[in-house]
Design a binder for these strands. Structure first.
Lengths: 189, 189
DNA sequence: AGGCCTTCCTAACATACATCAAGGGAACTC
DNA sequence: GAGTTCCCTTGATGTATGTTAGGAAGGCCT
């Protein structure tokens, strides 16, 4: 159960066996069926989640009811409404399971305590945040300056697993395209 | 000289007079003339900068030599190549003065020491990072899902000062438009 | 003052993507 | 097993933005 997340953490920081136990002790398992919601707009967000298995998406619903997908998450990814999680505000996003999924939950309070007891984890999560920041920055660049075709090709290269698992219509949405346009782009290769 | 930045910090955290002195003591002044570079691609980035007066932009030059503006900064903003600053890698961006500018520099080492001596500053900079993260997230949404016209109107609303000070061609670039298109959009109001 | 360069605008034409409408096949449901 | 839904595709047409070309006003430098 905990092997995946420990490997994941150990890729960035070193932990003794005891520290590993302490980390694992603050995790709790969450199971979701396809179409279930992990987070809904307006709710408080007190946890972030590591994906052990399955697939989820985070999206925003605008005033017109249109959906805008911000993130997919598969095995070995983190997901939450990070803005709400960090700032303590209510969720602006929905996080919904695209497949039956198993997650590991870390509550904000436990995380703060963990930071105090094992400061290495501050470093770990700072690395994660920096990575997210960089990914967002490059997504801004590509969304502003590149064609749908280029964005799709980059997406396939960056997230080949996701491209195969998630409906094309969701990928089109993530890329800022209509499903018809993505279909035509794919047809023209 | 230090009044602006102290007001800026005190908006988010409370500091005693002594803590204020300690903070100010790690700052150093940097003056730039129009068209001078604060940061160039490939350089190490060991500082972040608070803008006391003037105006700057951060941009990326791609393989073709095309410029992609990521950020403007005027009075009371922070600027750097944050990715390089956080991760310790070489700069990927250029930061260039659009006007004669006065900045306050914080070196990374001094900042780490400051965190140790006055932990409140961790909170302050975490608030700043969260804000930057959120701003990037909403920029991804608007760049993927909104028309050039809408993006321009939102820009004018969010940054009225910048819209007046910076050449339209730079604003077009920031918005992912050609100058001709922005001109058309402005004409049609 | 003269010349140059920057900034902003205009116009004609080209293109990428959106929109609207429709249909077919695969997967799920009862 | 039939009906229903989801997902992908296709075609006709519309629109926003890119491309190319040029021109005019204002600021800056010598």
């Amino acid at each position: 159960m905990y092997k995946e997340i420990l490997d994941h953490v150990l890729r960035d920081i070193h932990l003794t066996a005891q520290e590993q136990d302490e980390f694992v002790s603050i995790l709790s398992e969450v199971r979701l069926s396809k179409k279930e919601f992990l987070i809904s707009q307006g709710q408080p967000v007190s946890s972030e989640y590591y994906v052990v298995s399955g697939c989820l998406m985070a999206y925003y619903l605008d005033e017109k009811g249109d959906r805008h997908i911000l993130q997919f998450a598969v095995e070995d990814w983190w997901i939450s409404d990070f803005e709400a999680f960090f700032s303590g505000s209510a969720a602006q996003l929905y996080v919904e399971a695209l497949e039956d999924s198993v997650l590991l939950e870390i509550k904000k309070d436990s995380l703060e305590e963990l930071y105090n007891r094992i400061p290495k984890f501050e470093r770990f999560f700072r690395i994660k945040i920096t990575g997210a920041f960089v990914a967002l920055r490059s997504r801004v660049l590509s969304s502003l300056q590149k064609s749908g075709r280029q964005r799709y090709l980059e997406f396939c290269e960056a997230y080949p697993k996701i491209e195969k698992r998630v409906p094309k219509s969701h990928i089109a949405n993530y890329l800022g395209l209509k499903p018809e346009s993505l279909s035509r782009i794919r047809k023209a290769l």
